[in-house]
Simulated scan of single mutants.
Amino acid sequence: MSLEFRYLNEEEMIQAGVKDMARCITAMEDMFILLNKEDYRMGGENANEHGIRVSFPKTTTIEGMPTHKPDFRFMAMPAYLGGRFKMFGIKSYGSNPDNIKKELPRSILMMSLMDATTGAPIAYMSANILSAMRTGATCGLGAKHLSVKTSKVVAIIGPGTMSRYTMEAFVEAQPTIETVKIKGRGQANIERFIDFCKSEFPGIKNYVVCDTLEDVCNDADIVFYGTTNAAKYEDNPTVKKAWLKKGALVVAASALLVDTEFLSDSGVKLISDNYKMYDGWGSGQPLPTQKNVSTLLGMGFYDAVTEGRISRDSITEIGEILCNEKPGRDSEDQIILYAVGGMPIEDVAWANDVYDVAVEKGIGTVLKVWNQPEL
């Protein structure tokens, strides 16, 4: 029996609709519903691993061996997603902040889709845009289901590539947005982000560049943290309740440090994309895991639960909200913290839908694995 798979380069992924944010948000909603129904599997014994990372030493005497630095990592992220997808996939990537010196993106990603029963390859595709889209859409569905109605002001901390895709999802979810406040580390990134928004979102009228985290958070309906990890843990960004207006939604898809008093405040609601993932990361690791494992907000939730500062029941899963098992926003004044950590089932969901369009429209190159297997 002959075996073939479809290869999609980045241009072909765009032709197949990988940039369709509305459809991507829908795919993420479908994925979170399946997550809540436990119709999925990720890596590890608990089936909730973010991925498998190859670690490198801080120093080495071996010629050519890479050494550790912030945001330098090589990972494989396998997952199965059921429901309408019924697909197995693996996203693989290498990330090196020095790539910019070679005129390359910091991270270079590829996605494989395989038949979930036979393991036969189905597709191999460029995944930089796919990965950015699924993260942006995951944040955007938070804005859709958790932010106050007719949100008008968005704060962006870290105006890089991820924030551009997330901004697109925010505008898709809340088209009433008219003001963007920005806090960045470099003027060039800030200017690129503003230029992007002006070209893509003509409905946005005002741009405000802020010098401090407090200033950027003030008066924002939606606050997004999308910075890369700081070299020193203590230098990672934070947020305080006093900086936020009533009803603010804080979405964190990167490093964010939050103190105990804020997490345990009765006027603050904690929402996770998948608490089991953070619980799996933290198990057996020294506390605080947010310092020793990951600076993601979800690890801060895990630390607070493990140390007895908050109860596990105080954290709501976004899937529970989408399945109408629990409410999202309890009041217009409630502040919400939404933790986004990234999961390979997100990649499988969006890759599957883009692949379906590629097949329908005949996009990509069909490559042969064999006419008849030798083994």
Rank of each mutant, 00 (worst) to 15 (best):
C197D: 11
I315D: 13
T166Y: 02
N229W: 07
E168K: 04
G267L: 06
I318S: 07
L109R: 00
V209C: 06
L81V: 10
R309T: 05
F196V: 14
L257Y: 14
L287Q: 14
I271M: 12
L244N: 01
W370M: 10
I33P: 00
M167L: 14
L270P: 02
V18K: 01
L8R: 04
L109N: 08
K368E: 15
A351C: 01
G184W: 04
F224P: 00
V258P: 03
Y93P: 01
L337E: 11
F170V: 08
C210P: 09
T365C: 09
E320K: 09
Y275L: 09
L146R: 13
T61H: 08
L8T: 01
T179L: 09
R192H: 12
G184I: 04
I33F: 10
T67N: 11
M77W: 09
E178D: 14
S147T: 07
L337D: 11
L213T: 07
V153S: 06
P327V: 14
K152R: 14
G226F: 03
E4L: 13
I310S: 02
I335T: 09
K246S: 08
S95F: 02
A231K: 02
Q187I: 10
A47N: 11
T59M: 12
I315C: 10
M111D: 12
G51I: 00
E317L: 15
A169D: 00
Q334D: 12
S126H: 13
V293G: 13
P288S: 10
C210A: 14
V354K: 04
G364T: 01
M42L: 06
A230W: 04
Q174L: 11
L3F: 13
I177H: 05
F193M: 05
S199H: 14
A255M: 06
I177S: 05
I90P: 12
K240T: 03
D353T: 04
A120G: 11
N128Q: 15
I310D: 12
V251D: 07
A339S: 07
E332D: 15
A358S: 08
G51L: 09
C210R: 08
P373V: 06
S283L: 13
